[in-house]
């Protein structure tokens, strides 16, 4: 349990740094995990060069999905949308620093799935993206 609920996860869950809606925003996407009802929205402000300048998430979910969202958004500030498209499951797990079973993996990857769907401009269904994220 101490492995799963590392201090950083509890801390980010209780005191997130990137929680909030951005209005106006350049990119916004929301989705949920129908299994557990976790619902997350991610807003981004992107400059002319396609670099993420500001990011915020809102919604509700478990400690894993919320901490994942917060750590993920922190990591993408200053990155280009092209770089975001290359982010993988491993990147998220590295941020969280934990190993997860299949059920909780969905919680951890929900923010990345939403972030990518937003950056791809909804060109693909988010389910396809989830598969890409999990591969």
């Amino acid at each position: 349990m101490d492995d799963l609920y590392r201090e950083v996860i509890i801390e980010r869950y209780k005191n997130p740094l990137y929680r909030g809606e951005l209005d106006p925003h350049d990119i916004s996407f929301e989705d949920e995990n129908p299994l557990c009802g976790d619902h997350i929205r991610i807003d981004l402000r992107v400059d002319d060069q396609g670099i993420i300048r500001e990011a915020g998430f809102s919604g509700h979910g478990c400690a894993i999905s919320q901490a994942s969202a917060d750590l993920l958004l922190e990591s993408v500030i200053g990155k280009s949308t092209a770089e975001i498209k290359k982010l993988t499951k491993e990147d998220v797990l590295d941020l969280l620093g934990i190993e997860l079973g299949p059920v909780r993996l969905k919680c951890a990857l929900l923010p990345l799935k939403i972030l990518k769907a937003g950056v791809y401009g909804l060109g693909e269904s988010s389910d396809d993206l989830l598969e890409k994220v999990e591969d």
Binding site: M1, L4, K14, D38, H60, C62, A63, R104, C107
Partner: peptide
């Protein structure tokens, strides 16, 4: 208060 049910269930499972 302050704890998502999934986290409750996960810790109870342990």
């Amino acid at each position: 208060d302050g704890v998502h049910p999934h986290d409750v269930a996960q810790i109870l499972d342990s």
